[in-house]
Amino acid sequence: MTPSPAIELKHVSFHYGNVKALENVSLTVARGEFIGVVGPNAGGKSTLLKIILGLLKPASGEVRVLGLPPEQGRKRIGYVPQYPRFARDFPITVEQLVLTARLGQTRWWGGYSRRDHDLAHEALRRTETFALRKRRLDTLSGGQLQRVLLSRALACEPQILILDEPTANIDQRVETEIFDLLKKLNSEMTIVVVSHDIAFISYYVSRVACLNRTLMCHDTAHIDGNLLDQLYGTHVHAVEHRHD
C-alpha cells in the first residue's frame, strides 16, 4: 500500500459571498516535497491554506491531509501564520509561546510535562533561538519572532510544515537564513510555503504552484516571462535562477 499523499485537493472551489476565491483547484503534494505557492495578492493563497487547515470548508471538492479529513490531519501540521493575531505586548515568554504547540497532545490539566519542555527546547535549538527562551515576546526583533513562530510549529512534531509569507517583514539576509533552515528541515517533513516572491523561493523549492483563483502548476524550470504575465496579468521581470 502506498502511503497517502501529504496533501490532496480535488476540484476545490471556495467563495466569500459572491466573490470567487478559488475555482476548481486540484493539487497533490507528495510526502517530502518542498512546494512554493505563489501568486498575486488576493489570488487565494491564504484561502487555500485555510482550507488545508480545515479553518474554511470548501463549497465543493474534496480535501485530504495525510489521507484524513483536515480536522484530523491538521494535528500533524505545523502552521506559521502570516499575520499573527496576537498582541505583540502580550505577557508571555518565548518558551511559553512554543509550549502552546503541545496542547492537544499533552495532559488536559495543570502544567506541561517534562517531554513537552524537551520538545519545545529541541524546537528552539533547531531555529537557534534557545538563548531567547526566557525573553518576553515584545523584546524580539522581527526575524527572531519569525524563528520563534517556526519553533512553535516544529514543537507540534509536524509531518507537514505550512508557512504563510514567512519572510514578509524581515530583511533579505534573515530571509536567506530562514529558507536555508527550511531546506534542511525538508529532509524530515513536507513543506508548503506561500510567497509573493517567486524568484526568491524558486531557488529553494522543488515545485511551484501558481495560484490566481485557479491553479497553474509547474516545475520551477518552466517559470518564464510568459507564465508570469498570465499569472500577474502585467509584465513582470523574470529573474534568472538556478536549479540544483
Binding site: 487547515l53 479553518l55 501540521i77 502552521y79 496576537f86 502580550f90 502552546t100 496542547l103
Partner: peptide, 23 residues
C-alpha cells in the same frame, strides 16, 4: 484557572492557533 492555565493562556494569546491544536 489552575487546572486550565495553559488552555486559557493559549486561547487568550492566539485563538486560531489554539483552535488548530484542538483546544
Amino acid at each position: 484557572v489552575g487546572l486550565f492555565y495553559k488552555q486559557f493562556l493559549a486561547v487568550s494569546f492566539d485563538e486560531e492557533f489554539a483552535h488548530l491544536r484542538g483546544v
